[in-house]
Computed example of a mutant assay.
Amino acid sequence: MKYLLIMQIDSDVLEALTKEEMAAVQKGHGAFMDETRESGEFIGTQALGALGQGALIRVEDGAQRVVTDGPYAEAKEFMGGYYMVDVESKERAIELARSLPDASIPGLAVEVRPIMFEAGFDF
């Protein structure tokens, strides 16, 4: 079954990391990609731009459409990127998520969500 391992980011937490800590995070992501490619579980990954680089479209006051520059939510955390993996079970997806460096940094998180439908991806 395919899962998204969604990295929930807090910019303040990332900015507080030392150069050495950030290098360890990047090295950890490289190792994660190498290991999941080798196991055949890796499908792909994408990192998203900062909140201020996007836009949000929503309906307010009935039918009025509003395009708003970010940030968009009250929470400090936002989806910073994801890995798509194909694993045997939810437990394995959780095991992989726990091995991501983000899951070991206070203030960051990795969300595990099953993919229920997909179309148009040629992985």
Rank of each mutant, 00 (worst) to 15 (best):
M1Q: 13
M1P: 13
Y3A: 01
Y3G: 00
L5K: 01
I6C: 09
Q8D: 08
I9F: 15
L14M: 06
L14D: 10
L14V: 04
T18V: 06
E21I: 05
A24V: 00
G28L: 03
G28W: 06
A31W: 04
D34S: 06
D34T: 03
D34K: 12
T36W: 07
R37H: 09
E41H: 10
F42M: 02
F42A: 07
I43A: 04
I43G: 08
I43Q: 10
G44H: 06
T45Y: 10
A47K: 06
G49D: 12
G52P: 12
G52T: 01
Q53F: 11
G54N: 01
A55P: 00
L56A: 11
R58E: 12
R58Q: 13
V59F: 15
E60T: 06
E60V: 14
E60R: 15
G62L: 02
A63Q: 13
A63D: 14
R65F: 14
D69Q: 08
D69C: 08
D69V: 09
E74L: 07
E74W: 05
A75C: 12
E77W: 09
M84C: 10
E88H: 01
K90N: 11
R92S: 00
I94P: 00
E95C: 00
D102V: 04
A103Q: 03
A103V: 03
S104T: 15
S104Q: 15
S104N: 13
L108I: 12
A109I: 10
V110A: 09
E111S: 05
V112G: 02
V112S: 04
P114Y: 03
F117Y: 10
F117Q: 12
G120D: 09
G120E: 12
